[in-house]
Amino acid sequence: MKHEILCRPAATAVRFSLDAEESLTCEVGAMIAMTSGLHVETTSRKRGGGGGLMKGLKRMLSGESFFLNHFTAEKPDQSLLIGPTMLGDCIHHAMRGGTMIVQGSSWMASSSDIEIDTTWQGFTSALFSGESMFWVKCSGDGDLFLSSYGAIYAVEVDGAYTVDTGHIVAFEDTLQFKLGKAGKSLIGSFLGGEGLVCKFQGQGTLYCQSHNPPSLGKLLGPKLKPK
């Protein structure tokens, strides 16, 4: 399976070239276009077993869909085009036996060997981080495609790193994430417009998005006419 990321970063789409028998698992609704030799299967399970009802329900908690779409090439040389819901970027992350913790709606596609599960990051981060309460946990060997709102940039953390709430796309499980204040004093942090921030500790890759959807909502919301 080959992939090509097009039109980064504002209106990104990913084009896959699949050989016969190769398959890809995608988020529901991510498909933009495809050639005719692809077989689409929609289930709540991982391809070839695993998962089922509970996994589907857990996925829903994290903001993903209950169902998954599996695209399998029945003929050689098939092409599939997928894209994110929001205006934004997509990235490819090659996984080699580790675990990636992905923010609710950022998981877009992964090769069928990757296990997709749900995890949660504790009460405080759930309530105040501006991220969803549950996260998608991807583990195994293979390719992972993540989407975002705005551009994605990767940071190799070794030590400590701080990200504003709402800007996390994904991080490796070797990183620990805690909620803290941006400045020394809590009031100062709020007056500075940063409020609470997510503080990462450890070693691993972290993906951030340049924009965050709640901020857009706050900006647009008051300008909309009531129904």
Binding site: T99, I101, T119, Q121, D158, F171, D173, T174, L175, Q176, F177, Q201, G202, Q203
Partner: peptide, 23 residues
């Protein structure tokens, strides 16, 4: 000790060039 769960054990060489971790 660290990681997303807070229970991951990291073993490092003194110069931090090599890290082996397990949860």
């Amino acid at each position: 000790l660290g990681g997303a769960s807070g229970r991951m054990l990291f073993c490092r060489t003194p110069d931090r060039s090599l890290t082996i971790f397990c949860e």
